[in-house]
């Protein structure tokens, strides 16, 4: 057990170190963006004087490293600062957006992960038969289409033609749960279709790999049904790569859904980030970037630890 504790501590420390490195990268990245936030905020109606005034007020005239440490100090004390463009507190506005993103990602994952794994198991059971080919074909097709295409097709049929679900997924505080679920039905479906094939194919490949082993043959020889062989003997041994790919897709559901957010007008983190990049709102971009990095790193740590825990050989290293 102490091995696990040590492992977790080690990975967490590495993760935090990585986060610091990422924060430097993010900061450097935001510095080399062309353009200027004051100009972006005021647009064509700005005058040189109002630009100078705004730059002065936003502290854009300080050197970059001073601004970096100033920001880092704020983040460590839980203060993400205020958005340069709108003057709103970043932590407050991110909270709502992050919650929305997690809500959508959660429901997409609740549908997508079990569906992908079950489809993968079925594909293995009937491998190389028509069921396998049908499942693989459909899943690959849905992944191959770009997200915006799937989104528009869903909107066209379910929102415009049959009017079953709303085509715009604007959610707001105090919205009843049922309405909220209805609002995210289409974006969650689109996301499910996008991530499904990756997880399904990985499940199928990982289990098929194990199916070549001697102990599976033994299981078959001792008379277990095909499904029980997969469930009891193949799946537990194939779980590590499956967890890895599931975590990768979960991370994608949280940090990579900006296109789907735009199409369905969903107020999540992606759109929030893009808006602030356009406006050169550096504090917000940094904060969002850091949150995304944290999500990515922690999901990867979880995948790592889960894979080790699931594998007796790694759990008891000699």
């Amino acid at each position: 057990m102490s091995f696990i504790v040590k492992l977790v501590a080690q990975r967490m420390a590495l993760g935090i170190l990585l986060l610091f490195a990422v924060s430097v990268l993010i900061f450097a990245g935001t510095q080399i963006l062309p353009g200027d936030i004051a100009q972006a905020i005021l647009g064509q109606s700005a005058t040189p004087e109002s630009l100078a005034n705004l730059r002065e007020q936003l502290g854009l005239n300080d050197p970059a490293y001073i601004r970096y440490f100033h920001w880092l100090g704020g983040v460590l004390t839980g203060d993400l600062g205020t958005a340069m463009s709108s003057g709103q507190d970043i932590a407050t506005s991110i909270k709502g957006r992050l919650w929305n993103t997690l809500f959508l990602a959660f429901w997409a994952a609740v549908v997508a992960v079990p569906l992908a794994i079950i489809l993968g198991l079925i594909a293995v059971r009937y491998r190389n038969g028509w069921v396998d080919k049908l499942i693989s074909g459909l899943a690959l097709a849905s992944t191959s289409f770009p997200e915006f295409f799937i989104g528009y097709v869903l909107v066209y049929f379910f929102a415009v033609k049959w009017q079953i679900f709303p085509g715009i997924s604007t959610v707001y505080d105090g919205m009843p749960f049922g309405e909220r679920i209805q609002a995210i039905a289409l974006p969650a479906t689109a996301l499910t279709l996008v991530v499904l094939a990756h997880m399904m194919r990985m499940t199928r490949a990982a289990i098929l790999n194990v199916m070549q082993s001697a102990y599976v043959e033994t299981a078959e020889l001792k008379g277990l049904s095909a499904f029980n062989v997969i469930r009891k003997h193949a799946f537990p041994n194939a779980i590590a790569p499956i967890i890895n790919v599931v975590m990768l897709n979960l991370a994608y559901l949280i940090v990579g859904v900006v296109v789907v957010e735009v199409i369905f007008v969903y107020p999540g983190m992606g759109q929030y980030l893009v808006d602030h990049v356009t406006k050169r709102d550096v504090p917000v971009v940094q904060a969002v970037g850091l949150i995304f990095a944290a999500v990515y790193i922690s999901l990867n740590i979880i995948a790592d630890i889960a894979a080790i825990v699931a594998n007796p050989r790694l759990r008891h290293p000699k």
Binding site: A159, Q163, G167, I168, T170, I263, V265
Partner: peptide, 19 residues
């Protein structure tokens, strides 16, 4: 006032009677 920046989504919203 709903902000729908994607032109196609705006059209969809009008056609589906949402706006």
């Amino acid at each position: 006032v709903l902000v729908i920046n994607d032109a196609t989504a705006r059209n969809g919203a009008l056609q589906s009677g949402r706006v």
